[in-house]
Each structure stands twice: as C-alpha cells, then as structure tokens.
Design a protein around this nucleic acid. Sequence first.
DNA 1: TAACATATGTTAGACATGCTAACATTGACA
DNA 2: TGTCAATGTTAGCATGTCTAACATATGTTA
Lengths: 199, 199
Amino acid sequence: MKKSGSYHHGDLRSGLVDAVRHLVEENGPDRFSVADACRIAGVSTAAPYRHFADRDAMLMAVAVEGIRRQRATMEGGLSGPGHGPGSDAAIVSIGMGYVSFACAEPGVFRLIFGLTRTHGDDPDMVAEGMQTYSVLLTQVAHRLGKAEIDADVRRLSFPLWAFVHGLSFLLTDEKVTALKLDVDLPDMMAETVRKLLAG
Amino acid sequence: MKKSGSYHHGDLRSGLVDAVRHLVEENGPDRFSVADACRIAGVSTAAPYRHFADRDAMLMAVAVEGIRRQRATMEGGLSGPGHGPGSDAAIVSIGMGYVSFACAEPGVFRLIFGLTRTHGDDPDMVAEGMQTYSVLLTQVAHRLGKAEIDADVRRLSFPLWAFVHGLSFLLTDEKVTALKLDVDLPDMMAETVRKLLAG
DNA sequence: TAACATATGTTAGACATGCTAACATTGACA
DNA sequence: TGTCAATGTTAGCATGTCTAACATATGTTA
C-alpha cells in the first residue's frame, strides 16, 4: 500500500477514497474539501486530479461505493432463519438493513440521498440505485407469488421504500433527534411493514 | 423597498433572503455562494455581514422561513369540507401538503432536511420542526380521542411522518425519478395513510 | 542494461470565495 | 445643524479548486 518516504504513494486513489469517506462522516457531505483529503492522504493538493476529474467525482466515488455497502447491509439479514423469500421477516430485515446503514454512516447516506446535484445524470449512480431497490422488489414479488416485477409489485414496494427512506433521514437528523422521540426501532419497523404489506 | 441609485439598499436583508432562496432552488443548497447572492441583490460581497453572522446564518434564515411555509401548506388543506379533525381526509391532506411543498421547492426542502450540520444546535430550527410535527400529532390525537399527545399518539404518528418525509425525498431525487417509477401520488398517499392508521 | 514512454507525483500560480478591517454615506434625532 | 448609529464600499487575508509546467518513478523494449 503506502510506501513511506517514497515519491509515489502506492495506491493514492483508494487512499483518497478512504479519506473522503472519513471526512464526509466527520464534517458532513457539504463542508468537504479536497484540501482536507490531501492533508489526510499526505499528498499535495494537485495530486487527486491524476485520479479524479474534480471534487464532485471524488464524492461520487464514495457515494457509489456507499450505496453498494448499503445494499450489502440490506442483503446481509436475508440469509437468517425464518427469512424465507417474501416473508415478513425478510422484508423487515431489508428495511432494518437500510436504516442501519444510514445510522452507521449518516454522512455517506446524506451524500448519496441528501444533496441535490451530480447524481441524476450519472448512469452508474442510477444503476446502483435501481439495483438496491431491486432487493426489495424481488422479495415483494416473491410475496405476491409473481415471477416478474409488475405494477402490483411496484405499488406495494414503493411505500415501503418511502417509509424506510424517511425513517433514515429522521433518525439521523439533528433537529429531529433533538425532539427526543424515543422510538423502538425494531418494533416500529415490524409493525409498519406488516401494515403496509396488508390487504 | 429598493431605492435605485442610492447608496443604501432599503431592505437588503429581505432582498438577500429572496436571492438565497432563488439560488438554493436554482443550484441546490450545496453550491450556494454568498457572492452569487450579492450579485443578485446588487451589493458588494461584504454587505451581507451587516445582516447575517455568516453564510450559514443566511441559509438558516431561508430554512426557517421555508419550514414555516411548509407548515402553512400542510394546514392549508385542513379547512376543506369533509376534513373533520382526525379524519382520514384531514391526515391525508396534511401529508399531501408536506409532499407538495417538497416538490414545489425541492431546494429549500433539502436545505431544511437534507444537509447535515448547522440545524441541530439551533433552537429556532428545533422549535419550528416540533411545531410542524405538531400539526400531525394534533390530528392523530383527535382521531384517537385523546386530549393530550401521549405515547399512543406518537407511536401512530411517527411512521406517518417517516413515510411522507421519505416520499418527499424520493420524489425530488434525480436518480430516483430517473427510474420512471410513475406513482399516482394522491392514490398512494390515501392508501398508505389508511393502512398506517389502521388498528 | 540503456533509452524511452507512461503514470503519478510536486511546485507555482490563476481565480473564486468567506470574512474582516478601515473608511464612506445616509438618515434619524437632539 | 451637528452627531451618532446603521448600513454600505473598497482593500486585503486566508483558504480552496483546479491547471500548467516540471520531476520522479515504473515498466517496456531494443
């Protein structure tokens, strides 16, 4: 990896990605500066431009890598016992994974979903988003006994996504947590998913 | 208001707030620069600091004013016919107001809820957030026949908030709208609220 | 192994931005 | 009318993004 004292870094790209992720978590996705990342990685402020087009590209790299990690977290609970395809437990565990990621890495979560620009026109980002949503869509399709993801599947899935998405923002929002809402997360998740899947 | 050609602006503070709101909507809450706002308002880049402590304070002013406008939008539908206190229709209309505001002013919505910093420690912001949430809490209390907002009211309300909150983000997220999810918003809102309020 | 090409780093600098200090202008009021 | 507080301006510092020109390492080929 890092070759101390040598002119070349060894693996600056991934060193920078680590630094950016750390900074985004530390200071928030706004407030990120390339110069900070350079200080952490121990290189000059011009070095990143050999690996990234610009500041936005650095953030985008962390966002894409983050959305993949979120998907992994969501899929992580699917293998447990009692989590048959399309079961309540399976769908609840996907939701818990989604929210857990947001709570574990609120900075990265907000980098992915909180800001406005830069993402909509990036095909990688759109594709990753779709693939993550598909984890839920697939389970809901199973539940409905459908071989394909059709309009019924989508109609049932979208409110579930909206719910866990909003929950993730609320639980990681300083001015909301300041209200001391004290929710029992697993309970509320299970209850809400059950209601939304009903009828 | 503006006294053209004169040394003093007349009402620079509100002129700047307008400029900031416009820019936040145009470029997103990140990407906002004080210098841009000054160009729009037609003053030097030092002028704002007579009215705001710093850049964050300018954004905060727009955020606070925005959250009030969102609350007004939520309350706007409550007076309609068939919207008795605690009725499904009343609660649906609150939700529609919440989401409508986000769709009408996505930049401001993300300024309020999308970024990380600056809000949690501001008592104004926390108070405004609570007051907005109370619009929902009050209706739900009516529905449950409770005189006070107790744990039951909160348990039922929070998932509703999470749902409309997440919905607002998804509907204003470029990489999500790129997926062409085509949802019938009023239908889905009514259906989901009905499910979440059920037994 | 020597010579070259490519990848990857550095320094210097152009330009934008946030913010402060010192100064200028205006309006309000004694 | 003279003074003061409010509110604007210009000048300038510190920092940040990004580019251009140069330096060094790495790998390939004769």
